[in-house]
Each structure stands twice: as structure tokens, then as C-alpha cells.
Design a binder for these strands. Structure first.
Length: 939
RNA sequence: GGUCGCGUAGCUCAGUUGGUUAGAGCACCGCCUUGAUAAGGCGGGGGUCGAUGGUUCAAGUCCAUCCGCGACCA
């Protein structure tokens, strides 16, 4: 009998599964989308509409897609899907950053492991293959995340046409006189005879000499110093071999320095380091003399201990009192800080060390040192030993001792590297007012968040001239020429342009493969150039590569426009891509390449620390996609406030998974209850909808407003929070819960049931569109079930819909009134629930339907009046069997809950005073009898 | 060390121009339900709003300093 009655209910029917199985289902849906050319359909649908160009920052092609890279791409994808639903054309051309040292480094390591060595062309070929292989991998991983893009048009910085654009842009730099050649210290590997980049350095512990060296001051009175004895400024260094290149001594302007008297000599050191100095050099019985601020020492002229020149005192903020004497040996040709200080004071980056590591005979290096190598083998450094000898003979060496410290080593030869000034190419950022123009352009861009503007400004203002040459093979060649006899360099815009054209068709390899004659054939060679020239072997800094993408992509692709509407990358790109793109755009086009720049933070672990390999946690996007599915990863991205750090942990993914399940369950409920609903036949007019249905439509309107507002502000986590709240509170706990009774127990065509189905249908359609940018797989899956009761449908796709609109009729006066009433009655439910819960804990009732409610209150009380006016709604909204209103003058509103009297209807489970006969269905409540009669016409 | 940013319940986030006992969802505990069921409902516990000091009648909300974390520099 009970089974039979259950069969008379209109229970939900749907094939939309509760269990998502995202890891298995999503790839099938991707294939479905690709088969239908979803990206193309989306573009075609918006043909003629204004374009929203989000220009893709190219990920580096040297590994699997990192979870942070995935976050970036998913934010872009969500924005584009949203914008397309808002009526924009959203062409999206993804890119790949292919050149650069990390790839060359990896490739060289592999070659080394196989004991192979290759020339530049061979290395380039291996790098190109490496890069291409990772493009394939990454593209697959991006597609798996549900990224929709014009993959056929993707740009790659190693493509000949792209390389041609880079060089074309570079030609404009040269033409405007922005490019110059100058010396700058770089890491140098002596055995490899090559410059190294940061990534090619390994830090290892090393035992070095540390020495205290006295620089005699001939004329202390020039700075109003009155030492008791002949004065020396004392420096401390761990690289004695750089002393021949010493050009200055740096002191901190704010530090205090003190005269230390010992024997017949006076020494000048920082007061804070006086004790350490006296102890290290065993100056027993030393006494202090005058004290002086570092600032006052500027311009003092100590003499170099073994070369006949002055080593003037200069000021530098980086001088510390951690170690040494507070007087820092400064060799602008052997250190970056030294170089910068040297620049400030007009010293050349003097470097008497040749490529092979030996001292040059330049007329300044003492004869005793010429030809001696600075390369350390077996812990012995011939240059250090020779320099120490020299210092001793001059009486300048106060102390030498061993010193253990971490020191950079060449990753290939494993020998200590040296810092050595080499000729490099630079872009002069203040030439042609480039910096001024760039700073001005910053003001025309919308920075999101606004603090990004300060960051880019600081980066632009603080940046020294841009060193754009790299002594590497895997990159775009710098089309410069050199005279073998004089070493003079030759760079000309016309020639660069000629090379650019050739490279655009032949590829960068051509530069290496062709002879000088071939390279210059047909080029407009300046008359002043000598006949005898060789090609340069340097490549361009890869930031020029990616920084030229707006020229090579936005300005070229027919669907796009220049400048782009939006750049969206991690906040580290203020010093990277945002900046390099701005420089190239200012130089070539005179304005910024983007209208707006949106930045996000970095993925961190539960301790808010950067995700690192030592965590032992998975770091690639695929790890998470395989475990949770792309929609979960996407929902995580949407839920986080990406403007600061973005935490990632198993606990967070569990929470997100729960939220997802909640959404999915609501979808299943709605789809299941719409199985026999056809809007064209059954829809109820808005003004005829029941109050609770009008209520949910207004709630939906509020949701649409909230999500839309959040999306317009790019604050997707607010959208996600609003959707989560709507799902659990508005739908699951309230609307779906309340409306179950009428959906299940009334006759299929009951106006009340059709009213609710009408609302459910409207809510579901809006809801699916709202979640589509964030969980596109699930949204489209449900959309298929809604339209065709099947998993895949060819005729329609949620991503081809317009963003949901609010029907003005939902919010008319009657709707507002119904909404207000239902909202208040719902709020009062909390007061019913408390006493009801007490009965339940006492095991007196179970389901809320077993309860009968009595409300007492003054008839004039606003709430009591409201309940009286809407008495018909109360049992349904509170999900109880009866509600009795007892007006009582002067009484406060009170809710009393008891176990319901009467009998329980076996069909509706409601308690009624008495059951009635319903033929073959037995005894049921009067209301159920009517429903059965309506459904079966015969009982 | 410098610049910028962040720091509200176990987790993810709200807290508008300073103003009632600091909120939501998830998680947790208890009860109910088994006709949304690898679901659902109800009730409950839980926060000295990073710390300290200050401005104010009133501060999570403004100011200062410090601590922690991150990014970029050095």
C-alpha cells in the first residue's frame, strides 16, 4: 500500500547524476565542444559587436602547467566567458614564451649528460625542439582546464614572423638612438670563457682569504682630519685578486668612523666595527682618536697600496656593519654595487682581468701580477697569493686569514665564478625622454588594484639602463657587427630592419648559419662601416621578446586591436612583462599597449608561504585536475580573492568540493522537478505566481545584480560567495525545502505546482548562466539536461547565451509585497524552530510535519497582522501540519509548538483531523484525495 | 635591508564614508529525516577582528610602532 501511494507522487526524475565524475566526464565535454567549434561559435555569435581584447601573457615553455599558471589562465577564461555573455566579441590568442636561459640551461644539461657538445645552431635546434614539446604539453593541459582560445592562431616567440617583429621593434629603438654599448660586470666562468646568468650559478661553500688592507692617506688635513700618526683607511675583502681593479673606497654617509691609534700608525674604520678590527689585527693597546661621520669623508684621497693612483672615498648606502671595517673596497669592474657606485662617481668599470682569467698588461697592473690567473684550482688562487705578497712588501697587509662563505660557482665547470666587466648593449631609458613618456603613459592606464600604479611607477623610476644583450645562443640575435681589428661595434637601424625581414621568413637560425656577406647582402650598409666585419653572437634579453607581443600579436591579428583592453598577470610582472611591454610600446608607438592592467597574487600553502617543491605537495595543474576535476579547480579560483595571496590546501579543496556538491545537488533537484514541465504549455504568468514563487524570483533578481556587480568589478570571489549563499540558504534550506510538498503531492497540473515549476525554470536558466563562467563543464551539462534530458545536446550551449536579465515584472509592486511577506514569515520560522527543536530533542516529534503551531499575539501587532493576512502560507513555509493564530489583546508575540493531533496522511505525511476514503488507494487526507482524483480521474 | 601588499571564527570570505550584543558559507557537535538520499532539515558551540600604543563620546573600521607572511628589489 505505502509503495503504491509513493508511486502516485510527482517525485523528481532526471538522469543528471549526483556524482559528478568530473575527471572522467570533462574530457568528453571538451571533445564535444571542439567537435562543435564552441570557440568559433562564440565568436561568430558576437560578430559585429565591440571587441574586448584580453592579451595573453605568454607562459614560459619549460615545464608542465603550474597551478599558479593555471590560476592565471582560468581567471582570463572566466572573464572572457563573462564578457562574451555580456555581448562582447572576445577573441583570445594565447601565446608561448620560448626563448631564454632556463631552457638553454636544461638542454645543455641533457646534452652534457649524453657527453654531447653542440655549436650554437645545434643548441638552438635542441632548444626549439624542447620548447615545442612543452608547448604541446601545456596546450593540452590548458585545454583540459576548459580554456577556450583561438589555438590555431597562438603566438610563439620563436616563430620566424614573431622574431621578425621583435627585431623590427628593436630597429626603432636603434633608429631613435636609444641603444648604446657599455661595460658592465657579469658573472664569468673562466674555464668556459662565457658569461653566466643567475640561473647558471650554484652557490657552494668556499674557503677564501679575507684580508685587512691599509690605504694610506697622504693629506688628511684636506678633510679637516687631524690624526695622531700617519693615517690609513682600512678595507676588508674576501677577493684580494680584485684589488688591482680597486678605484675607490665606499663608506656609509650616516655611519660614524673612528681613528684607531696603534704604534706609529692611525687607522680609520667604522666605530661599530672597531673592536672586531682591533681584535682581528691584534692591535693590542690601540686607543681611539677623532670620530667623524662617513659623509664628511667623501672626497678623501687615500692611495692605492701598490698602484700609483688615488682610491677616493665615496658614499654608498649598502655599506653595512655586518663584517669588515665599514670601508668597502670598490672595484666597479668586479661587482654590481661597485659598478653602480662607480657610475654615480664617473669611474669606468675597469677590469684588468682577461677572458682567460689572467691579469692583462695594461700599463697599470704591476709587472709582478701580469699573466697570473685569478682562477682558483684545488683551493689555491695564484692571483690572491701574488696580491698578498705585494701587499706585504708594501706594508699594507694588516692581517690575512681564512674565511668560509657561500660563493657562486659555475654550474658547468664547478669553479668559482668571477665578476668581470664586459661590453654589453643597453637601452638608455632617459634618452629621447623615454622614461618621462613611459611614466606619463602610466597615468592613462587603469590599474587594478589601484596600487599597481605605484608599483609600476617605482619600477620605471628605479630601473637603471636596460641591459639587453645576453651571451647566449637561444634567443633572437642582436644584429650588431664588430671590427676584428679594432673591436669597434656597429649597429644600424637600416641593417637591423634588413635582418628583421630576413629573419621573419628564414628564422633566427639564419643569423648563425649565414656568412657576414650573406647577412649583409642587399642591406643598406652605412658608408662609414669598414669592409672587414664579423657578426655578433649576443642575443636579446627575452623580456624584449615577450615585451614585443603587443606589436607581433595585438597590432597584427585581424580579430584584435591595439592597444589591448586588458593585461592580466601576477603582480611580479610590474617589473617584468608589464614594464617591458610598456617600454617597447612607448618607443615604437608612443603610448601604453594596454588600457587596463589587472594583477593577482601568488598561490601559497596553508601556512601562507610560497608553494615550493620541498612542501612535497603537487604543484602542477594536472595533479589537481586529475584528483578533483577542472570545475573544482575553477571554482577554487573563482572563490579566492586573488588580489592578495591565494591559499591552496587539501582542506580548501574539500570545502570547495562541498560547495560544488551543494550546487550540483540544487541543479539536480531543479532538473528533476521540471521533468514534466514545458514552459510553452505550462508556464504561469508572473502576476499569477504564488507568493513563495514571486519571492524566489526577486531573490534571483538580487543574485543576478550581485553577481553581475561582482563580475564588473572583477571580484569573482564575491560572485562565488553570492552563488554559494544563494545555493545553500535561498534554494536548498528555504525554497526547495518549502516547495517540495506542493511539487510532490499535488496533481501534476495543479496551478500551484505549475507556478513553482515556472519559477524553478526561470531560476534554473538564470542560475546556469551565472555559474557558466566559473564552472563551464557543469553549467553546460545541466543546460543539456534541461533542454534535452540528456548529457550532450548539439543544438544549444549555455556559453552561447546572453547574460541573464531581470524581468521587470518580477519586481512589480505585487511581487515586492509578496517578497516582503514571505521574507518576514521565513524570519519568524526561526522562532518556531527553537521550541520545535526542543520537542525533537525530547523525542516527542521527528519531522517538522508532526508539529502543530499556535501563535498568540496582539491583533494590532505588525507581525501578528502579517501572519493573519497570510495564514494560508504558514503551514507550507514553516513545514508544519497546522498553524493556529490566537489573537490576545496586549499579548507579546509567542510561538507554541506541540505534537500535532489527529492522524497522519500516509501519502502527504501531514497530520489531519481525519482521513477519507480514496478507493484503491485507501485512506488519505482530503487534499490528497483531490490530487489523486485529478491525476487518475478514477479512484 | 628597501619598496609594495596582506594578516576578521578550524577553512574561504563579507564587514560601505568609524556608531546597536562582529556576519555568511563550509567544517565541527547534537537531533531529525530516508519521497533531493554518495542527498536534505533544525538547533548549537566557536572570534580579546596579528600585537602594542594613540585619536575619538564611540575603532575590525583612522594614526603610529612592532610582529608574521608574500611579491619585487638589494
Amino acid at each position: 500500500m505505502a509503495e503504491e501511494l509513493k508511486d502516485t507522487l510527482n517525485l523528481p526524475v532526471t538522469d543528471f547524476p549526483m556524482r559528478a565524475g568530473l575527471a572522467e566526464r570533462e574530457p568528453v565535454r571538451i571533445a564535444h565542444w571542439e567537435r562543435h567549434g564552441l570557440y568559433g561559435q562564440i565568436q561568430a555569435r558576437a560578430a559585429g559587436k565591440p571587441a574586448f581584447v584580453l592579451h595573453d601573457g605568454p607562459p614560459f615553455t619549460n615545464g608542465d602547467v603550474h597551478i599558479g599558471t593555471a590560476l592565471n589562465k582560468l581567471l582570463k577564461d572566466a572573464i572572457l566567458r563573462y564578457k562574451s555573455m555580456r555581448g562582447f566579441r572576445t577573441p583570445y590568442v594565447p601565446g608561448w614564451d620560448c626563448h631564454g636561459l632556463p631552457i638553454e640551461h636544461k638542454v645543455m644539461k641533457e646534452l652534457q649528460a649524453r657527453k654531447q657538445s653542440l655549436d650554437a645552431l645545434g643548441v638552438r635546434k635542441a632548444c626549439a625542439e624542447f620548447s615545442a614539446a612543452y608547448i604541446e604539453k601545456q596546450r593540452g593541459q590548458f585545454k583540459r582546464l576548459g580554456i577556450l582560445a583561438d589555438w590555431a592562431s597562438e603566438y610563439r616567440t620563436m616563430d620566424p614572423a614573431y622574431e621578425g617583429e621583435i627585431l623590427g621593434g628593436f630597429a626603432s629603438f636603434v633608429e631613435q638612438g636609444l641603444v648604446y654599448r657599455s661595460k658592465k660586470p657579469v658573472y664569468w666562468s673562466i674555464p668556459c670563457q662565457t658569461a653566466l646568468a643567475e640561473a647558471e650559478i650554484e652557490y657552494k661553500d668556499k674557503r677564501s682569504h679575507s684580508v685587512w688592507v691599509a690605504f694610506p692617506v697622504a693629506d688628511p688635513a684636506a678633510k679637516q682630519l687631524a690624526p695622531a700618526h700617519p693615517l690609513s683607511v682600512v678595507i676588508w675583502t674576501t677577493t684580494p685578486w680584485t684589488l688591482p681593479a680597486n678605484l675607490a673606497i665606499a663608506v656609509h654617509p650616516e655611519l660614524e668612523y673612528v681613528e684607531v691609534r696603534h704604534g706609529e700608525r692611525s687607522f680609520l674604520v667604522a666605530s661599530a666595527l672597531r673592536e672586531a678590527f682591533v681584535a682581528a689585527c691584534a692591535l693590542d693597546g690601540a686607543v681611539d682618536g677623532f670620530k667623524v661621520k662617513g659623509r664628511a669623508l667623501e672626497g678623501l684621497q687615500p692611495r692605492h697600496p701598490f698602484i700609483d693612483r688615488a682610491s677616493p672615498v665615496v658614499l654608498a648606502d649598502y655599506v653595512t656593519t655586518d663584517a669588515g671595517t665599514g670601508c668597502v673596497h670598490t672595484a666597479p669592474g668586479h661587482g654590481i654595487e661597485d659598478y653602480q657606485t662607480g657610475n654615480k662617481y664617473g669611474f669606468e668599470p675597469y677590469c684588468p682581468v682577461r677572458d682567460d682569467g689572467t691579469y692583462a698588461d695594461d700599463g697599470k697592473v704591476p709587472a709582478a701580477l701580469v699573466g697570473i690567473t685569478v682562477l682558483e684550482t684545488d683551493g689555491k688562487n695564484p692571483a690572491n697569493i701574488a696580491v698578498l705578497e705585494l701587499l706585504k712588501s708594501k706594508g699594507a697587509l694588516l692581517k690575512a686569514q681564512s674565511f668560509e662563505h657561500s660563493y657562486p660557482h659555475c654550474w658547468r665547470s664547478k669553479t668559482p665564478v668571477v665578476f668581470r666587466a664586459l661590453d654589453q648593449w643597453f637601452v638608455g631609458l632617459d634618452r629621447g625622454d623615454l622614461r618621462k613618456k613611459a611614466l606619463a603613459a602610466v597615468g592613462d592606464v587603469k590599474w587594478i588594484p589601484a596600487s599597481g600604479e605605484n608599483r609600476i611607477r617605482a619600477a620605471l623610476e628605479g630601473r637603471p639602463d636596460w641591459c639587453i644583450s645576453r651571451q647566449r645562443a637561444w634567443g633572437v640575435p642582436i644584429p650588431a657587427f664588430y671590427s676584428p681589428s679594432t673591436g669597434e661595434s656597429y649597429l644600424d637601424a637600416g641593417v637591423v630592419r634588413h635582418v628583421a625581414q630576413q629573419v621573419a621568413t628564414r628564422g633566427g637560425d639564419w643569423w648563425w648559419a649565414a656568412s657576414v656577406e650573406e647577412v649583409l647582402a642587399g642591406a643598406p650598409i652605412p658608408a662609414a662601416w669598414p669592409k672587414d666585419l664579423r657578426k655578433g653572437t649576443d642575443t636579446l634579453d627575452v623580456w624584449i621578446d615577450s615585451g614585443s607581443s603587443h606589436l607581433a600579436v595585438c597590432a597584427k591579428h585581424k580579430d584584435l586591436h591595439w592597444p589591448a583592453d586588458l593585461y592580466l598577470e601576477g603582480s611580479d610582472q610590474h617589473r617584468g612583462w608589464f614594464q617591458s611591454s610598456l617600454w617597447t610600446a612607448i618607443a615604437v608607438k608612443g603610448s601604453a599597449p594596454y588600457r587596463a592592467v589587472l594583477t593577482h597574487g601568488f598561490v601559497v600553502n596553508e601556512k601562507r608561504q610560497k608553494i615550493s617543491k620541498s612542501d612535497g605537495k603537487p604543484q602542477t595543474a594536472d595533479d589537481y585536475v586529475k584528483k578533483y576535476g577542472a570545475d573544482i579547480v575553477r571554482l577554487w579560483v573563482a572563490s579566492e580573492n586573488y588580489q592578495s595571496d591565494i591559499p591552496l590546501s587539501d582542506a580548501i579543496f574539500e570545502t570547495i568540493s562541498n560547495q560544488y556538491r551543494s550546487m550540483r545537488n540544487s541543479l539536480r533537484y531543479q532538473l528533476g522537478n521540471l521533468y514534466d514541465f514545458d514552459a510553452s504549455k505550462h508556464a504561469v504568468a508572473v502576476d499569477q505566481l504564488s507568493p513563495v514563487d514571486r519571492w524566489v524570483l526577486i531573490e534571483t533578481a538580487k543574485l543576478i545584480r550581485e553577481v553581475t556587480d561582482a563580475c564588473e568589478r572583477n571580484e569573482f570571489h564575491r560572485a562565488a560567495a553570492a552563488l554559494a549563499g544563494f545555493t545553500t540558504a535561498t534554494l536548498s534550506a528555504t525554497y526547495h525545502n518549502v516547495v517540495k510538498d506542493r511539487l510532490y503531492t499535488t496533481a501534476p497540473d495543479d496551478p500551484l505546482r505549475r507556478s513553482t515549476q515556472t519559477a524553478l525554470d526561470l531560476v534554473l536558466r538564470a542560475y546556469l548562466k551565472l555559474i557558466a563562467p566559473f564552472v563551464p563543464f557543469t553549467a553546460d551539462e545541466a543546460w543539456s539536461h534541461l533542454h534535452a534530458k540528456t548529457e550532450y545536446v548539439d543544438s544549444t550551449n549555455v556559453h552561447l547565451q546572453d547574460w541573464p536579465a531581470i524581468d521587470a515584472r518580477w519586481e512589480d509592486a505585487a511581487g515586492q509585497a509578496a517578497h516582503a511577506a514571505v521574507t518576514r514569515i521565513q524570519a519568524l520560522a526561526a522562532q518556531v524552530n527553537v521550541p520545535m527543536e526542543r520537542l525533537r530533542q525530547e523525542k516527542k516529534i521527528g519531522q517538522s510535519l508532526e508539529a502543530a503551531v499556535v501563535v498568540t499575539g496582539d491583533a494590532a501587532d505588525a507581525d501578528f497582522a502579517l501572519l493573519t493576512a497570510h495564514q494560508a502560507l504558514l503551514t507550507e513555509l514553516w513545514i508544519v501540519s497546522s498553524v493556529q493564530l490566537k489573537p490576545q489583546a496586549g499579548a507579546a508575540l509567542a510561538f507554541q509548538v506541540d505534537k500535532a493531533d489527529g492522524v497522519r496522511c500516509p501519502r502527504s505525511w501531514r497530520w489531519v483531523p481525519a482521513l477519507v476514503e480514496a478507493g484503491r488507494f485507501g485512506m488519505v487526507s482530503p487534499r490528497c484525495r483531490e490530487a489523486l482524483l485529478a491525476k487518475y480521474s478514477q479512484l
